[in-house]
């Protein structure tokens, strides 16, 4: 059997993201739950300096992030790749108003996916986001994750851009349904 290349556990790499969000002074985190974001969501909820809000659908987070910026607070939105499609029209808010938007997307439907229903959205997430005006960085190496989120946040909040960091299944691991 081929050895599993995923060797950094989520409890470790999630903290690279968390520290980058803290470094960027993010004060609101909105999320639709994903197994890949489990540790990060727990860290955000445990942090009294971050207002952490569960959403019913991902587009709510795009709008909430805009409201946070109007009020002088930096926000991040966490989701799974299947939620990317739910955001599309709401991304016009970020594009037209040049709102900073920092999306952290855990990928499904690519590398090693065993649930075929995840493939259509996962396979197109990066292209869909780029077509909607976002700048997209895919990260497949845990060692690069902290720097990628930190630079994405810098570009979002200082250059007023919508930036998505896609965390690949090479990093997360591919869930097996067998």
């Amino acid at each position: 059997m081929t050895p599993d290349p995923v060797n950094v556990p989520q409890s470790v790499w999630s903290q690279y993201i968390y520290q980058a969000l803290k470094q960027a002074n993010v004060g609101q985190v909105a999320y639709v739950p994903d197994a890949g974001h489990k540790s990060l969501i727990e860290s955000c909820h445990a942090d009294s300096a971050i207002t952490t809000v569960a959403l019913t659908t991902e587009e709510e987070g795009v709008a909430m992030s805009a409201g946070a910026w109007l009020g002088g607070v930096r926000a991040a939105v966490l989701m799974q790749s299947s939620g990317v499609g739910n955001c599309i029209n709401m991304l016009s808010l970020a594009e037209e108003c040049r709102f900073p938007l920092l999306m952290i997307v855990t990928m499904r439907g690519e590398w090693g996916e065993t649930n075929p229903w995840q493939v259509p959205m996962g396979h197109t997430s990066a292209r869909v986001l780029e077509l909607a005006g976002m700048i997209v960085y895919q990260v497949d190496d845990a060692a690069r994750l902290g720097a990628e989120v930190e630079m994405a946040a810098q570009m979002a909040f200082v250059s007023n851009r919508a930036v998505a960091v896609l965390i690949g299944q090479r990093l997360i691991g591919a869930k097996r349904f067998e």
């Binding site: 004060g27 609101q28 207002t51 809000v53 587009e59 709510e60 987070g61 795009v62 709008a63 909430m64 992030s65 805009a66 409201g67 946070a68 910026w69 109007l70 009020g71 002088g72 607070v73 926000a75 029209n89 709401m90 016009s92 808010l93 037209e96």
Partner: peptide, 18 residues
């Protein structure tokens, strides 16, 4: 002028920020 369905959530982000 757009972003239909988002007004209340813009309000939530703003209310939590202020």
């Amino acid at each position: 002028w757009g972003a239909m369905g988002g007004a209340a959530m813009v309000g939530l982000g703003l209310a939590l920020a202020q």
